[in-house]
Design a protein around this nucleic acid. Structure first.
Lengths: 123, 123, 123, 123
DNA sequence: GTGGTCTAGACCACC
DNA sequence: GTGGTCTAGACCACA
């Protein structure tokens, strides 16, 4: 996994969790990777992973069983969905729309980029 | 002008310049507000404005005439357009698309949000 | 380190970096002093050092690892060499030559000064 | 006349005077251009020229006859020569030598640049 | 009037 | 611990 410079690493790790939960790759009560293991896999400081986990736990997206690990909570799906959608529609989309105006782009162009992006994913 | 807390103030001031240049409110060789004046208008510290100006000057978007002020450079339009478009297509759009996938949204929904946003602007 | 008053402090700190990089005292990917530490060592305000670092980062001479520090970039050597040589040959040397003409000095005299300067360095 | 960005304009105008005096294009008691005229010729603000003249007058290089103009003083030659030589040997040359060391250049290379520069002047 | 630099001190996010 | 941003206030050189 590569990290963008525009966003903090621990939030990008959270994004990775959001994806896995929303797309149901990780189900309710399933164990998520250990802090240490994930830190090794992602080549980041364990503190950084821990920060993500603390953050997700605060939001009741994962829960902890002492000595065993972290697990996906019951409400994870709905919490994440609300969270992501909220931020998407109130922060990110308006930002995009403003930039579109500045660049004089219309929805069709965005749509083209989208199709392009999707076809690139397959390869 | 209100500042979002997600982004540094000096970069939001830069964004303000980008808009004015792209939409040709400010033309080539036109004088831009003085550091002190803009600081007063935006209610920020002059150092913060100075930081924006230094940044824009480094990117050859504005130039300085000693003792007189800053002016929009010849290539400002094209430099800004490249800059903004580059970041938009390589950073922001993919981010949006990823989130769309996660949320299971399609282009039609985005388009609806867009039209909604545009009609809100008019009011 | 003493600072000349003809040049801004933050640029003199940059010169110090140029020297260390060109003479390979600092190698690629080596960590450079932290902003705070260097500020203490040089007895200047951290903001002043920060200004140098931002400048060098913009020029891709150093890069940042979040929360860890600044490091010498791959291309640092060649960038600095180009930078310094460019300025030396197009700005400083012509200036010197013009003054030599005005003073009626020839290359031999300059050479004498040079040898003199070098022998003073040793003591 | 073109002005370098590295030096203040009024000092570059002073340099122009130094050259004319040292190379005896302007002799003792000869009238120098009026402030207004020179400002027009050089396309600078009259204040800037005035600043040069004040500076030169302070150093007894030119003197003023009220209502008539400025004139080259008796001691102009020797004063300028001392002034320029002093700055040249204590400020500029050491600076050059330091840069030479950093770039690993020797006197021969400088000499080559010098010959090159002189032959370019003729064209 | 203009920009340019610097200090002092603070607060924050991040690793 | 690291950098990043911002404020307040000052002083200077320059046009």
């Amino acid at each position: 996994m590569e990290f963008s410079k525009n966003k903090s690493i621990y939030m990008q790790i959270a994004d990775y969790f959001y994806g896995n939960i929303l797309l149901e790759k990780w189900k309710v009560d399933e164990k998520v990777p250990s802090v240490r293991q994930l830190a090794v896999d992602l080549e980041v400081n364990p503190n950084t992973v821990m920060r993500t986990y603390t953050h997700l736990q605060d939001k009741n997206i994962i829960y902890n069983q002492r000595g065993i690990g972290f697990f996906v909570s019951n409400e994870a799906q709905s919490i994440v969905k609300d969270l992501v959608k909220e931020q998407f529609t109130t922060d990110e989309l308006p930002e995009i729309f403003k930039t579109m105006e500045m660049l004089g782009m219309d929805m069709q162009e965005i749509s083209d980029y989208y199709n392009n992006w999707k076809s690139n994913l397959k390869n």
